[in-house]
Amino acid sequence: MRNNASSLRVLAAAAGVLWASAAALPAVDPGVAVAPRMEFTPPRPGTYRLQRIQAAADATLLDPSARPVRLSAVTTGKITLLTFFYTYCADPIGCPLAYGALLAVRSGVGRVAGLERRVRFLSVSLDPTIDTPAAIGNYREMVSQDSALEWDVLTARSVRDLLPVLDDFGQDVSVEQAADGSARRTVHHMLKMFLIDQTGMVREIYTLAFLQPTVILNDIQTLYLEEKPHAPCSHRPDHLRSKIQAQID
């Protein structure tokens, strides 16, 4: 009951924010264009080829122990699902929705033999001012519960250190400025989730209209089949193996 009551309070607060937003409709809707729906059966893993969109950015960020970490160290070697977030984000069609999708994908990954150890989730805070190493440590503790899947959480020393990473990924943000014009905090972002292959190449980008956990899971399996076309994988018809191998070759 207590949890339900808390959830309802959050819902009521969020609804209040929404009402207030609707009452003063801005010229530009800061949110995304559409909410996710899925009214189709997606193509099976390994029957299609994901595009090689761009190389993942590199930079030095901080882990929950405030140790410097090269971003490339956690965007290579495994299939990585990277999301930018902040721990206090309450935008109903922002971080919480992404978080729900990630949990659904993680559950699916866990059901495919051998896949869990080949996949990593990576959450990078958009707001290093609030999300200190200690704060992201709490977040990592929460998201890592009850799962063996690697889920790394990073922050940056400053907005200044973070902006080149966001710029390179094309992660849309707006930045609140201090009186002297310096960047103080990021205040809004367009939801994007980046699927990165083990070589560090971005292979898919999910915005809200695309945030379909079944498709994301299929895409992860498709990358897994690229790595190991003979590995066990759900939904993969054997007759497609030669086609997949041909694409890889």
């Binding site: 959050v10 069609i93 729900g100």
Partner: peptide
């Protein structure tokens, strides 16, 4: 936030 956010979503 996830529960509330998803419901509002």
């Amino acid at each position: 936030l996830g529960i509330g956010g998803l419901l509002v979503g």
